[in-house]
Computed example of a mutant assay.
Amino acid sequence: MKAQRTRSQDRILNLLKALNRSVSAQDIYIELRHHNQGMGLATVYRSLEALKLEGVIQVRTLNSGESLYSCVQQDKHHLTCLQCGASIGIDECPVHQLETELQKSHSFKIYYHTLEFFGLCDRCVTEISC
């Protein structure tokens, strides 16, 4: 039986739907305060964790260690520059078939997956080679 969401979880989920982009927990905290729906930062983190475990939001951790949260959408894949932090979205997904196989073979419910490649963007490669 699925636990019922708290008011804080509903507020955060509604905010993420409205923003329609990935944001940090700190950004969520600030946005809620701007909308007169303030809550403690610890509550924001607890609510995000519960929503993640429910499978309705996803988290992406940047190479800086910052976590970005968004509603579960289509799979997102990125090329991330280790020098400047630029992140380029890519549309191709080579792991959809693997995901299906893993769900069947391990009786494991997969909510989403991420695929990220780390390296240097064109601009940073040029700066390093100069």
Rank of each mutant, 00 (worst) to 15 (best):
E31Y: 10
Y29W: 09
L120T: 05
C71W: 03
V125E: 12
K76Y: 10
S47I: 02
C130H: 15
H106A: 12
E116F: 02
S107E: 14
T80P: 09
F117L: 14
S67E: 12
L13T: 02
C124M: 06
I57Q: 06
R123W: 02
S8L: 03
K76V: 11
V56D: 02
V56R: 00
C93G: 06
R11T: 03
T114M: 00
E116A: 10
T100A: 13
S47A: 07
I128C: 09
R5M: 01
D122P: 14
R21N: 05
H77C: 04
Q103F: 00
C130F: 14
H34T: 10
R21S: 06
S87E: 11
G38I: 02
C124S: 04
Q4D: 12
L41W: 10
C130K: 15
R60Y: 03
L13F: 15
L62D: 07
N20I: 03
N36H: 14
L115K: 03
C71K: 06
M1G: 14
T43R: 01
V59W: 10
E92M: 04
V44A: 05
S64N: 06
C121A: 11
H106M: 14
G55C: 05
L62N: 00
Q103Y: 05
H96F: 06
Q73F: 07
Y69M: 07
S24G: 10
Q74N: 12
M1A: 12
I28P: 05
H78V: 08
C124A: 04
R7N: 13
Q37V: 02
P94S: 14
I110F: 05
I88H: 12
V125M: 12
I12P: 09
C124Y: 04
R21G: 07
T61D: 03
E116C: 03
L53G: 06
E54N: 03
E66V: 07
Q73D: 12
S129E: 15
C84I: 06
I12T: 08
V23T: 11
G38T: 08
S67L: 04
A18P: 04
T126M: 13
L98I: 09
F117I: 13
L102S: 08
L16C: 05
S64G: 02
G89N: 15
